[in-house]
Design a protein around this nucleic acid. Sequence first.
DNA 1: CTGAAAGCGCTAACAC
DNA 2: GTGTTAGCGCTTTCAG
Lengths: 352, 352
Amino acid sequence: MLTLPYTHNAVAQKLNKRASITDLAKILNLSPSTISRALNGHADISEATKQRVWEVAKELNYQPNHLAAALRRGRSNMLGVIVPHINGHFFPSIMHGIETVASKAGFNVMICQSNEDVQREKNNIDALLNAQVEGILVSLARTTHDFQHFEKVRQQNIPLVFFDRMPEVSSVSGVVLDDHQGAYMAVRHLLEQGCRRIAHFAGPQHLNIYSNRHKGYLNALQAFGLPHDEQLMHFLPKLQQNAGEQAMRELLQLAEPPDAIFGSGDIPVAGALEVLHAQGIRVPQDIALAGFSNEPFTTLTTPKLTSVDQRGEQMGHSAVQLFLQMLKRSDNFAPHRVVLKPQLHIRESSMR
Amino acid sequence: MLTLPYTHNAVAQKLNKRASITDLAKILNLSPSTISRALNGHADISEATKQRVWEVAKELNYQPNHLAAALRRGRSNMLGVIVPHINGHFFPSIMHGIETVASKAGFNVMICQSNEDVQREKNNIDALLNAQVEGILVSLARTTHDFQHFEKVRQQNIPLVFFDRMPEVSSVSGVVLDDHQGAYMAVRHLLEQGCRRIAHFAGPQHLNIYSNRHKGYLNALQAFGLPHDEQLMHFLPKLQQNAGEQAMRELLQLAEPPDAIFGSGDIPVAGALEVLHAQGIRVPQDIALAGFSNEPFTTLTTPKLTSVDQRGEQMGHSAVQLFLQMLKRSDNFAPHRVVLKPQLHIRESSMR
DNA sequence: CTGAAAGCGCTAACAC
DNA sequence: GTGTTAGCGCTTTCAG
C-alpha cells in the first residue's frame, strides 16, 4: 500500500478521488502553471522544481486529465476508425497497423464497427465527432451508396481518410490495394499453370474493390487471348462459404466445366474446395483454385490455398500517415490516393 | 451546400470552426443554460423554445462538445477495453458483444491491444486512465504474471472487469467460460465415440483457461476409468499450426499411437489434421479430432472439425453488464464472477 | 524561472 | 420557464 508523508496526508485524504494539478500546486506552494509546465517538461523550469513536482506527482499517483487538456488545447489526441466488421484477418491486421503508427504519434484510437450497415455508419460518425476525434479513418459499409453523412466531417475540417473501400470520386483521400493487379496476377498465374477455363466468384460490384478484381480477371483472360464466358462468372452478394459451394455445384453441371476458379475472397473458394472434395474431384489436377485475402486458414485446408495478400498492416500504416499529413497542412492538402501492391502467395491448390 | 438566413450569417462566418452553445445563445437571445437544457430535452423548457433551439442548432450544424460536457459532469461516457490480440474469431466476437451492449447504455468504447505483452498492457492501462474512461474491461496478456499495474485502476475507484483470461484471485470481478466443462464435454464425446487413447494438445498452463481445459481432459478420462498417459500430452506454448503438426508427428511415432486428439485450440488441431492427411491416416475412423474455440475455419476443413464454442458474444455482453452494475453501486459491490456454459459443436472429425 | 488571470464548452445549483 | 453564476482541470498569454 501507498504511504504518504504526514504533510501531504491531509490533502491526499481530502481527495480520495484523484489528484489535480492544483492539488499539487497547493502542496508544493507553487502555481498551477508551474506544475503544468514541469509536468510537460517545459525547458524554462528549474531542474530542482521539476524533481519536486515529479516526486509528489508520483506519490499522489497523479494522472493528468486529458479531457481537460484536450478541451483547453482544442485537440483531443484521438483518432476515430470505422470498419465494416472485424471478421477474418484483413481488418484486424489493418487495425493493428493503425494502432501501431497512431500510438507512436501520440494518438489514442477509437474503433467502431458499422456492421456493414449505413445507418450504423452514420451513428459511428456522430459518435466520433462528438468524442472530438481529430481525424476519421473509414472503410465503407457494404450497404453505403451515398456519402452525405461524410459531409459533416468535411465541414468541420476534420481529416477524413478512407481505406480499402472508398468512394470512386477523386475528391477524397485514401489508401487502397491495387485490386485489379492482384486479380490479374492470380489469374495470370492460373493461366501459366495451363488452365484455360477459369471461373470467377465475384463480390458485390458496387464496391470498387470487387469490380476491380473482376476487371483484373477479365483483363488477364484477354491478355491471353481467351474469351470470357458469362457462364463461368458467379456474382456472390456476400462471398460466403455456402454461396461458394452452390456456385461450384452449378459450375460442375456445365457441359464444359471450368479447370480453375479464381475467387474474390478465400471463403467461397474454401466452400468450393469442399464440394470438390465431396465429389472426388482432384485439386489442383482437375480444378485449380486461387482466392483473395490470404486468410490464415488458407494454410489449414488440404491442399493449401493460393491467395492474394491485401497488405492489411501496411494499409493501416499508410492510412495513419495520410491522416498525419492532412493534419499538418490542414487546408492546402490535395486529396491523395495511396495504392498498395498486392502479393500473390502461391500454394498447393494451384500448382500443377 | 448549407445556406443560412441572413441574420445568422454574420455569426456563422465568425466561427468557421464549430458552433458552441454560447453561439446559439447569442443568436437566439437566450442564456447558455437554456440552450443546454433545450438540447438535452429538459422537461422545464417550453416546447416553443425547444423548437427554435433545435432549428438553429441544425442550421449551424451544431455538434455538442462531449469533452467539455464530460469534464463538467466528471463522466466521460467512455469504456476502455484491452484485448491480447484480435486474431481468430473469439476476441472479435467479444468486442462485438461489448460494443452492442455498451453503446446501448450510452458508452463509447475504446479498444487497445496488448499484443500479448505486459509492457503494452501497462501502457494501455495508462492511456485509458488518461482518457478518463469510466471503466476498464481486460483480458490478460499471455505474458502477464503479476497484477501490480491494475492497482492504479482500483485506487481510482474505476470499475475493472476481466474477461476470459483473469487472475485466479477472488477479489476481482470477471466473466469466464467454464473451460473445465468445455474440455470435459469434448473428451467425454470422444470417449462415447469409442476412443480410448486420447491425446491432448495443451496450452500454456499458467493461464487458467488452459490449465482448466487440461483438468477437464484428465477428469473425463478418470470418469471413464482410464489412466492418463504422459506420452499423450503435449504442451504447446503457443497453440500454433506447426506446433500441432510437430506434436502429431511425434504421437504417430509412439508404439501405441492415439485414436483421438483433443486440442485446447483449433489451430494446432488443424495442423494435426494436415499431417494425418499427408500420411493417409483417416479422420475420424483412425484418429478422431476435437478442438476448442469453434473458429469459423472449422467448417472449412475436410472433414469439418468438432469444437467447443466459447460464447464470445455472450461474454462481451456479460462483461459490460457487470461493469454497469459496478458503476451503480460503486463501493459496496462484492467481486463477482460470471461463468458461462460452453457449447460443443459436433462435426465430422469426431463422428464414427 | 515563476505567477496571475483568463477561458476552452458545458452543466448544475440557485435564483426569480 | 429562464437567467446568473460558478467551476470542472488544464494551458497559455502576459507580466514580472
